[in-house]
Design a binder for these strands. Structure first.
Lengths: 214, 214
DNA sequence: GGCGAACCGTACCGTACGGTACTGTTATTG
DNA sequence: CAATAACAGTACCGTACGGTACGGTTCGCC
């Protein structure tokens, strides 16, 4: 496994982005086994030689796919409006729903499966890369929200990471793993709204100030 | 993928159990890629022909490995003593620590990675098998504990599965996934005790009756 | 027009793996 | 002791895949 020498978003050409798109679709449809270099070349109407020229290696292709996908789902920063108990709850529920929907996405599931499959061998660069660009990014959004809630006197906590960890667990529990194991994610997607509300409700019971439970 | 025709624990011979043990060790050490039929045969000092005679198929071998491992970590039932606030809390913390240690186990991680890798193709029988024999089993223990707590008036909840889902999320959060992605599990193992206590504390704040917060 | 770079399509190579067949060896049974 | 079954060890086969090389085509540039 050899990641790109320049870790700072290599920013591929449009043509190469199209290829990465095809590769991702291939991965989603057929799993890692279907992601052969010949298959990618055929699906993207490019030559294997170009694949190796652009990405150097099959592992380089995988890394590029992860980076490419991560760059597409950039987390948007929440508006820094002044929070009330209601808006904080709304923002938290919105965050929870977004999180669940991202985790349940076809591409997200496929990439996580891919990275987990590679985690045993080599230094598992893919895993840390997914972790870094995936959860860490979305975690920033949650962290900002939590800090804003604390600043407004609506939340009480000492360690922000602990609070976020709790929030994450309440929202996701083992749902992500179950989906990764193949449990039908489409069937349970309809409950995301309800699940998000329950998780946020519990979180506010744990970390909300008296002021927030008006 | 073809599971055994008789799903009720085929119960292999001692010799075959030894082979499955070798295969598990091989899987733990080298990941799925290292789990070749020739490798298993070499590690277990048996012939490939015997492997195919006993397990029929590579997938049959994988299923057998999961069933074999699941049969080894059977969940023990908790003593049905009368619960007090203190003993309930102790039992919950014990459960949490056991859960974390099981999830962080080498073999558990390797098998989960294996099942997740297979989840994309075929009907993902391995995934549901792991789910059934893994979480469902340990969930029974938690369910009994929760029911006992409710019976003793220490816990208040309507849906036991919801309560267990919350407890699970508080204990594990995304720790399991991070370990599956390759984050060093040994380094974080020392925090399991503290993590278990915090999770149970939060759970009791959510679901404990006034009687329990004495 | 001529030239070179980029690139597609394909053929090709080496290897690794799943699965099968064969041979020799041990051990059990009548 | 003879016969049979089980099994280890190994050789073998077909295939699939990662990676490379090469001919042909398009496109931009002088």
């Amino acid at each position: 496994m050899q990641l790109a020498a320049h870790p700072h978003q290599p920013d591929y050409s449009p043509r190469q982005n199209d290829v990465l798109d095809s590769a991702l679709r291939l991965l989603v449809d057929g799993g890692e086994k279907a992601l052969t270099t010949a298959g990618v070349a055929r699906a993207a109407n490019c030559s294997k030689e170009s694949l190796y020229k652009w990405f150097g290696d099959r592992d380089g292709l995988l890394s590029a796919m992860i980076g490419f996908q991560a760059s597409k789902v950039r987390t948007f920063d929440d508006t820094a409006e002044t929070l009330t108990a209601e808006t904080l709850q709304e923002h938290l529920v919105l965050f929870a729903r977004d999180l669940l929907e991202v985790l349940a996405g076809d591409v997200s599931l496929a990439l996580n499966r891919l990275a987990i499959g590679q985690a045993s061998r080599d230094g598992s660069k893919l895993g840390s890369m997914l972790q870094e660009r995936g959860r860490r990014q979305i975690g920033k959004r949650a962290g900002a929200l939590l800090e804003a809630g604390r600043y407004a006197g609506l939340l009480v906590f000492e360690d922000r990471d602990d609070a976020y960890d709790t929030l994450y667990g309440l929202i996701v529990s083992d749902l992500h793993l179950r989906m990764l194991l193949g449990e039908d994610s489409g069937r349970m997607a309809k409950d995301f709204g309800r699940r998000a509300e329950k998780a946020v409700s519990a979180f506010l019971r744990l970390y909300g100030s008296e002021k927030s439970s008006a």
